[in-house]
């Protein structure tokens, strides 16, 4: 069932409640909330227009180009949020993201949904988008934890190198921390899924008229695809960026 114009306006009215309390407690977040909500509305309406055409054309190259553009934006966002050197790390991060998204999205569409057209816009674009959104969050947490950990505990990092640890061995405790911090939230979400919340994909499919059994199958498969792609992307990003981020003696460059 479509949402009418007035129904949409009624939905927006709900924003007044958080805005009132954010203002009451002088959080300074009202302006950010309004800007954030406005950007979301405009961006999503633009995407809706774009997707209409994307679905109508259904051209593999255009779909692929769209996913590449989304990946570039995601890689830039991750580096901006982590405040790491964009000039040094953009290419490795971009390569890692692109590989993870394409590998998992095409595996999902080809082997799980078993579509004959792997680049079908209705599947390829939204599934890639969902995977990218989660890759972005996992990578921001992982990169932040990894590089800030090495900077904060540089004494310990050097202590390991100076006592014979190889570069990979000295990085291992920091890799472990990065993986724990970035994947704990996803594991927690999977653990309570269906009990505490009905997840987005499933809710969307139910609202779109799919049967609950189809909806949960998609949800389960997507959660696993998201988990796998996030882990693959984090490992490749850390591996690829560290080749640029450290000097030949294993020390973190000052420019990072």
């Amino acid at each position: 069932m479509d949402i009418s114009f007035w129904g949409f306006m009624m939905g927006l009215l709900l924003l007044l409640i958080p805005c009132y309390y954010l203002n009451f407690y002088k959080t300074g977040l009202v302006k950010d909330t309004l800007i954030g909500a406005s950007r979301m509305i405009i961006q999503l309406f633009l995407i809706a227009i774009y997707l209409e055409y994307l679905f109508k054309w259904n051209n593999a190259w255009i779909n692929l180009l769209w996913v590449v553009v989304m990946t570039v934006v995601a890689a830039l966002t991750v580096l901006n949020r982590t405040k790491l050197s964009r000039s040094l790390l953009l290419l490795p991060a971009l390569g890692a993201f692109l590989f993870s998204v394409l590998f998992i999205a095409l595996y999902f569409i080809g082997c799980v949904v078993q579509m004959s057209d792997l680049f079908d816009a209705r599947y390829f674009v939204p599934i890639s988008g969902m995977i990218l959104g989660n890759i972005l969050i996992a990578n921001v947490i992982a990169l932040n934890t990894f590089y800030s950990g090495i900077k904060r505990e540089s004494n310990f990092y050097r202590y390991q190198l100076g006592n014979g640890a190889t570069f990979q061995e000295a990085l291992r405790p920091f890799m472990r921390d990065a993986l724990i911090k970035s994947f704990n939230p996803t594991i927690a979400t999977m653990t309570v899924m269906g009990l505490v919340s009905l997840p987005g994909t499933m809710t969307g499919q139910l609202l779109g008229g799919s049967s609950p059994s189809v909806a949960i199958k998609y949800q389960i498969m997507l959660m696993i695809a998201i988990f796998a792609s996030s882990l693959i992307s984090v490992l490749i990003t850390l591996w690829a960026t560290r080749r640029k981020a450290f000097d030949t003696n294993g020390l973190l460059k000052d420019t990072i």
């Binding site: 004494n155 006592n163 014979g164 003696n249």
Partner: peptide, 22 residues
């Protein structure tokens, strides 16, 4: 040299003055 640094570190016990041991 950059190529040999691991061979040198392999022979060394280094006790720094300040160590954080996690």
């Amino acid at each position: 040299s950059n190529e040999n640094i691991q061979l040198i570190r392999n022979q060394i016990l280094w006790l720094p003055q300040d160590i954080n041991l996690p």
